[in-house]
Amino acid sequence: MKERLSTVALIVAAGRGTRAGQGKPKQYRGMPDGGGGSVLARSIAAFADNEAISSVWIAIHKDDVKLYEKSVNTCKNSEKVNYVFGGDDRQASVLNGLRALADTQAQHVFIHDAARPFVSQKLIERCLDNITNADGVIPALPVTDTLKKAENGIISETVPRDGLYRAQTPQLFKFTKLLTAHENAPKGMTDDAAVAEHAGLRVCMIDGEVENIKLTTEEDFAMTSNLLPRTGSGFDVHRFGDSGSAKSVMLCGVAVPHDREIIGHSDADVGLHATTDALLGALAEGDIGDHFPPSDTANKDRASADFLTHALALASAKHARLTHIDLTLICETPKIGPHRGAMREKLSELTGLPLSAVSVKATTTEGLGFSGRGEGIAAQATATILLPETA
């Protein structure tokens, strides 16, 4: 294991959380998953319980000392926890916190939003593992929704989502470099990575976690209070064309070398078809044929990624969270093993899931049936979601 330098954590909890509706600031409300304690207490525990983190500081509003103390008293490692008053906005609160931490002589500092209480130990550890060769590390998820610009309610432009990511916290930085960057940063920076970028620091990105959501609105608190797990299954089969009919075939959005085309109305990607049907099944929204009928010429040779994107949009409309995909490809040829990594990465990119939540496997039928005779290829998939009880 790599030697880890001293690390502290700063949790930003000075906001008023007005978008979360009336009542206490959201960081002091009860956990919406029914797990007990406040949102802030859950966030504190994630860092205070980690042995690599020597102390945890909370930037709080000056009016919230009693609420803060009540939250800290529920944490088993409360002796590691201190507080500092925040500023007028998030950026000012972080700067106040960093200045208070200067005497700790820490080499690294985590910055975390209190409103992300679902942060996992695995994510914290992956940040620590990746800080060695960079000035900062942030988790992020690829943007999967179609992005639009609009003026006065009218769409003016569709924004390409290639290369766009949704930043999360915790974000880990070299302490001295981040403090200097904050001391010299202009106002209006929305996260600490932006401050670091402005200072010319090198910030690397790792896979975020879908579960690491930020509680922002009333709906966030309501929808996570009664989340029900749902699992859907999908199955798809396509036959092969003649030998020499292709140079490659699409499987899970990846071009795989093969000399026989996969015959279908769209691009015949059995991996994405099975995955899409699994997600639609979990949502009780029918199957691909209901949404993209083969009788519609618009779907001829269509990229199967469009089908999965559509299913993800339906999930988003129901406030459902996709948490896991397990896909098995069934064929004699082409060989899947050399391409499994690329397939997992593509599914991760399309869905926003971390690689750790995407499984791609392959098997044969030992020479039995149509697949065993090399006549075609099949895929079966399961998708797991968390769905609000009222959806």
Rank of each mutant, 00 (worst) to 15 (best):
L5F: 05
L5V: 01
S6A: 05
S6D: 06
A9Y: 00
L10M: 03
L10P: 01
I11C: 01
I11M: 03
V12I: 15
A13D: 04
A14R: 00
R16A: 09
G17F: 05
G17H: 04
T18S: 14
T18D: 04
R19W: 07
A20L: 07
G21S: 09
G21I: 07
Q22L: 04
K24C: 02
P25G: 07
K26H: 12
Q27M: 06
R29D: 06
M31Y: 07
P32A: 13
P32G: 10
D33C: 08
D33T: 13
G34E: 06
G35M: 05
G35S: 14
G35L: 11
G36H: 06
G37A: 11
G37T: 03
G37S: 14
G37Y: 14
S38D: 06
S38K: 08
S38F: 08
V39L: 12
V39P: 09
V39K: 07
L40K: 11
A41F: 12
R42G: 05
S43V: 01
I44W: 09
A45F: 12
A45S: 15
A45N: 08
F47Y: 15
A48R: 08
A48T: 08
D49W: 13
N50L: 09
E51L: 08
A52V: 02
I53A: 12
I53R: 13
I53S: 12
I53C: 13
I53V: 14
S54Y: 04
W57H: 14
A59M: 08
H61R: 10
D64L: 03
D64M: 09
V65R: 15
L67M: 12
L67G: 03
Y68Q: 02
Y68D: 02
E69P: 01
E69I: 01
E69L: 15
K70A: 14
K70G: 09
K70P: 00
S71F: 02
S71K: 02
V72Y: 04
N73T: 00
N73L: 12
C75T: 07
C75R: 03
N77L: 07
N77A: 13
N77M: 07
S78A: 06
S78N: 09
E79R: 14
E79H: 12
V81K: 07
V81I: 15
N82P: 00
Y83F: 15
Y83G: 01
Y83K: 13
Y83E: 01
F85I: 03
G87R: 13
G87Y: 05
G87K: 12
D88L: 06
D88I: 06
D89A: 06
Q91P: 01
Q91T: 00
